[in-house]
């Protein structure tokens, strides 16, 4: 019997000799490619400063990750450079206001990179979305630096002043006056890249084609937002219970971006259907409730972070439930 056991041990040393082309760099590359439309939107509407801001975020995020990895002594050993830093940096840039100064961007990048990513154990181990965390950090700590979006932001393609000085004008607008064409094309003051719902959806479509997105949470997010929007209206405005401003909210508040790039994320969201669905629902509910009380960017991103935190627990819980039957039987057998 002992020989048989040894034999068995040998026998199971199997390995697949083919590997999916969808490796981690590929997934992040897909994510970056999916954000290309948003980046083009940013470059078209905000010009050179948008390009500089995006490149700056990408480069600093990558450098910060590399540096910290080096300091922490995790690096080396032939591990591939996985582009997650670049994709996080890009995502962060896209949710910043167009006239963010480089200093503000750097603050967000460092927070996202060091606190949310590296302290938790490096690439892939982050519990929360680094981009969302960095963005939320600056809007909580330096609210005046990212106080909103400048109306009529098209100040010229070669205007670079705001990169150094930031912008003084900027507020969170009420987009209910915007016409549908403006909303759908992103022709309104909004964040650098997340404003254009068309571009975000295009990126989302690309992700779906490439299979680098998990749709449970985004779908439940949208469904919940839709179902409970009147309640949120009641909460936010006190009077109206209805779908006033629903389209404006859906298209202008960045929920599409959040759904596609943050809730569809493979890393920070639950992998199981039930958990993912639940997470999307919770995220939507929190957004709808917080909308009435805090700044729109906080209302948008804080729920994402909370469900990111939750997702680990949620995933574990769902797994336990799904395996409970089997385990009890195993116990019986023993």
């Amino acid at each position: 019997m002992s020989r048989k056991r040894a034999v068995k041990k040998e026998a199971v040393r199997l390995a697949p000799f083919i590997h999916t082309e969808k490796n981690a760099p590929y997934i992040y590359l897909t994510l970056i490619a999916a954000m290309v439309p948003c980046s083009i939107y940013a470059a078209f509407y905000y010009g050179l400063r948008a390009i500089i801001l995006i490149l700056f975020c990408v480069v600093t995020f990558t450098l910060s990750d590399l540096l910290f990895t080096h300091i922490a002594g995790r690096g080396g050993k032939g591990e591939y450079f996985d582009l997650s830093s670049a994709s996080s940096g890009l995502m962060l840039a896209l949710i910043l206001p167009p006239d963010t100064s480089l200093i503000t961007a750097l603050t967000a990048v460092l927070f996202g990179s060091i606190v949310t990513k590296q302290i938790f154990g490096g690439p892939g181990s982050n519990l929360v979305n680094p981009a969302a965390a960095g963005r939320l950090f600056v809007s909580l700590v330096m609210p005046s630096a990212v106080k909103g979006y400048a109306e009529g932001g098209t100040e010229g393609w070669f205007m670079l002043r705001t990169l150094i000085f930031g912008s003084k004008s900027g507020e969170f607008h009420d987009y209910t006056n915007c016409s549908f064409p403006e909303l759908i094309t992103g022709n309104f003051p909004g964040s650098l890249g997340a404003a254009c719902a068309t571009c975000v959806l295009l990126g989302g479509f690309f992700l779906v084609m490439r299979g680098s997105i998990r749709l449970y949470a985004p779908i439940s997010y949208f469904v919940t937002l839709t179902l409970f929007f009147p309640l949120s209206n009641l909460l936010a405005r006190g009077t109206s219970f209805g779908y006033d401003g629903y389209i404006a909210f859906m298209l202008s508040s960045g929920v599409v971006f959040v759904a596609v790039f943050m809730l569809g994320d493979l890393t920070t969201m639950p992998s199981r259907f039930t958990a993912g669905f639940f997470a999307g629902m919770v995220c939507a509910m929190l957004t709808l409730i917080m909308r009435a009380f805090v700044r729109p960017d906080t209302a948008l991103l804080a729920p994402v972070l909370s469900v990111n935190f939750m997702s680990f627990v949620l995933d574990f819980l769902m797994k336990t439930i799904s395996r409970r039957n089997l385990r009890s039987r195993e116990v019986d057998v023993r």
Binding site: I184, N187, T198
Partner: peptide, 25 residues
């Protein structure tokens, strides 16, 4: 392809909506 499509969409969308955006503004 994605970039080209999106650029076309963005520019087209801009032309389509800019008049309204200006008016609204």
């Amino acid at each position: 392809l994605l970039a080209i499509v999106s650029a076309a969409l963005i520019i087209g969308g801009f032309l389509w909506s800019n008049d309204r955006a200006d008016k609204r503004l």
